[in-house]
Amino acid sequence: MVERQTHSHEGEIAVFLLGMTINRPWRPDHWLPAFRAMPAMLGELYTNKAQSEGGEEEWLGFMGARSLFGARGPTVIQYWRSTDDIYRYAGMTDRVHRPAWLEFYRQAKAHPDSVGVWHETYAVPADGHESIYYATPSMGLGAVTSLVPVRRRGDTARERLGSEVRATTA
């Protein structure tokens, strides 16, 4: 029997959407460098997460991501411990993001309107997120944390918003 599940995370989170708009698809020489930068950043973040779990490095706060591809370009949904962690990572000169961002601006000035980038940041308080997963692979917040039976956080979305993890009942 398939059981309804929800994510286990109870604290605040930050959701960061990052996208690229390919305005001139016939000019991959203008947009491909920006496109190639994202896998390097994600690789660095996943490596940091793994190394921090092993005690080898301080955790940057990145929990995980999911990439989507649309007609105009990619979008990456990232989950972070906090908005402060996002902004701290973005400004680190010894990490992949800051040099890539500066290079993007240099290229964008030379070739305006060929490629666009955008982002949205959502600071989600501890009582401001809920989820449900039924007969689907782990994804989203459930994939970057872990899944628990729905009954641990409430049977309805309204109950899960603002819930604390409840003791499971047999």
Rank of each mutant, 00 (worst) to 15 (best):
H9T: 09
P125H: 05
W118E: 04
A170P: 14
E57K: 06
L42K: 04
A167L: 01
Q78E: 10
Y87D: 05
H30P: 07
G142K: 01
S52G: 04
F62A: 00
V150M: 03
I86F: 09
R153T: 04
R81F: 08
P25W: 10
A123W: 08
S52L: 04
W118V: 01
S114A: 08
M92C: 14
E10F: 15
S163P: 08
G142N: 02
A110G: 11
P99V: 08
K49E: 05
H129N: 03
V144E: 00
M20N: 06
T168N: 07
H7C: 02
T6F: 02
E159T: 03
E120F: 00
G61Q: 07
Y79I: 11
F35P: 06
W101H: 08
F62I: 07
R98A: 03
E164V: 04
Y133V: 09
M20E: 00
L42M: 06
L102G: 04
A40C: 00
T145L: 11
E159H: 07
I86E: 10
V124C: 11
S82T: 10
P33G: 14
I13D: 02
A90M: 09
V115C: 06
W26N: 13
A100H: 01
S138H: 08
T93H: 12
L68F: 15
R81K: 09
P99E: 01
G55M: 07
D113E: 09
R95V: 05
H30C: 06
T145E: 04
Q5N: 13
L45H: 04
Y134P: 05
L42N: 03
V144R: 11
V117R: 02
E56L: 14
A108H: 14
A167I: 00
W26K: 12
T121F: 07
H119A: 06
S146E: 15
V148C: 03
T47Y: 12
L18P: 07
M1E: 15
P74G: 06
G64E: 04
R88Q: 14
G43S: 10
V144M: 00
R4K: 15
M63G: 01
L68Y: 15
H119L: 10
T93G: 09
P125K: 00
P33M: 01
L42Q: 05
A100L: 03
G140D: 02
V115T: 13
D94T: 10
D29N: 15
L102S: 08
T47L: 08
Y46F: 15
V15H: 05
R36Q: 13
E159R: 06
H7A: 08
L102A: 12
P112E: 02
V15I: 10
F16K: 03
G128M: 03
G43H: 07
P149G: 02
V15C: 11
P39E: 00
Y105N: 13
S146L: 12
F62P: 09
T136N: 15
G142H: 02
R36L: 04
D29T: 12
A100T: 12
E57N: 05
I22M: 02
L60M: 11
W26S: 13
R152V: 02
M41L: 00
P149L: 01
E103L: 14
T21N: 09
Q51F: 13
S163N: 07
I77S: 01
A50K: 06
H30W: 00
W31A: 10
F62W: 10
V76I: 11
D85Y: 01
V165K: 09
A108Q: 13
P74R: 01
Y105V: 09
W31Q: 05
